[in-house]
Write a protein that binds this DNA or RNA. Structure first.
Length: 111
DNA sequence: AAGGTGACCGGCC
DNA sequence: TGGCCGGCCACCT
């Protein structure tokens, strides 16, 4: 692990993820688009991986474009991610968010 | 220093 | 209708 926790790129991602309202979710691509790098959704995923140590980054509110909890395996390897979402009122069925378009939240664009 | 990888996305076959 | 492929860019070995 690297000790470069002050990487601006990651902070930019965290800044957006922290703004996700309670009970809402967004996608990696949407965050990437807000950062201006729409095609680099993968980097958002990497940032989330590093955000694992941070408690103020609600990574469970970030899913892929299908509303699928692809990052579930990174949460203790159990259904913790799903429980966190359900706890916020987000209905999850078979690792997939129900009414995804209703709970979807579009990140604000920086510049 | 170079190559491989990834919590993705969009398009093509 | 669904599966496969390339792109994209930072991080790790």
């Amino acid at each position: 692990m690297s000790n470069q926790e002050n990487s601006n790129f990651f902070e930019r991602v965290y800044e957006i993820v922290r703004q996700i309202p309670y009970g809402k979710v967004t996608s990696y691509g949407a965050i990437a688009k807000a950062l201006g790098t729409a095609k680099s959704a993968r980097m958002v995923g990497w940032a989330m991986n590093a955000s694992h140590n941070l408690e103020d980054v609600p990574a469970h509110r970030v899913v892929n474009r299908n509303g699928l909890l692809t990052g579930k395996m990174h949460f203790d390897g159990s259904n913790l991610m799903q429980q966190l979402l359900e706890n916020e009122g987000v209905e999850v069925k078979n690792n997939q968010i129900v009414n995804f378009d209703k709970v979807f939240w579009t990140p604000k664009v920086f510049h």
